[in-house]
Design a binder for these strands. Structure first.
Length: 169
DNA sequence: CCCTGATTCGC
DNA sequence: GCGAATCAGG
């Protein structure tokens, strides 16, 4: 039989649509469908016009896949905007600089900005207005992002002794 | 570093 | 149409 590669059959497309609308990530869908990469899934999703599950407020993320491989323009690249002064919000007065250990603390959102797919790891004192949630992309089915999931779900064997107070920070 | 989706473009 | 490469961001 000349069964070429398992392309996007109607069944596979329907499965894709279903999983995508179901909120599964591209990589998860790719793994579930099998035989395709997450890029393939994303590409197909876009061609199907399914992209943009999340309604962004105001085209907040225009930047994405440019392809600088064309050296032609790379030569004429203009550095332009240099970022001289980082705002450096001094958010948590109780947060020492000891975060140098590599603590991501990337996004931080208020409870109003918190979405289902965002990490609910509490950060700061809940009794103060500075209180935020981590807000990173949560692992599907879990309330936390990958980083905080590792903290929250430590194997008992590993945290036996080194269990420093994880405290919400 | 892990992940996420977005985009471009050679095939 | 397809998806790897690449990008930006969490």
């Amino acid at each position: 039989m000349m069964d070429a590669g398992p392309s996007w059959t109607k069944e596979r497309v329907e499965l894709l649509k279903r999983l995508w609308s179901d909120g599964r990530s591209a990589s998860q869908i790719a793994a579930e469908i099998g035989g395709v990469s997450r890029n393939a899934v994303i590409g197909k999703v876009h061609r199907l016009g399914l992209a943009g599950r999340v309604v962004k407020a105001n085209g907040a993320s225009p930047a994405a896949g440019r392809r600088p491989r064309s050296d032609a323009d790379s030569a004429a690249e203009t550095p332009s905007v240099l970022a001289p002064a980082p705002p450096a919000l001094a958010l948590f007065q109780s947060a020492p600089p000891s975060a140098a250990s590599g603590l991501p603390e990337s996004s931080r959102v208020t409870i109003m900005e918190l979405r289902e797919f965002m990490c609910r790891w509490p950060m700061g004192d809940p009794s103060t207005p500075d209180f935020r949630f981590c807000g990173d992309r949560a692992i599907a089915g879990l309330p936390y992002c990958t980083h905080h999931s590792r903290i929250a779900y430590q194997p008992a064997a590993e945290r036996k002794r080194d269990r420093k107070v994880v405290g919400f920070r």
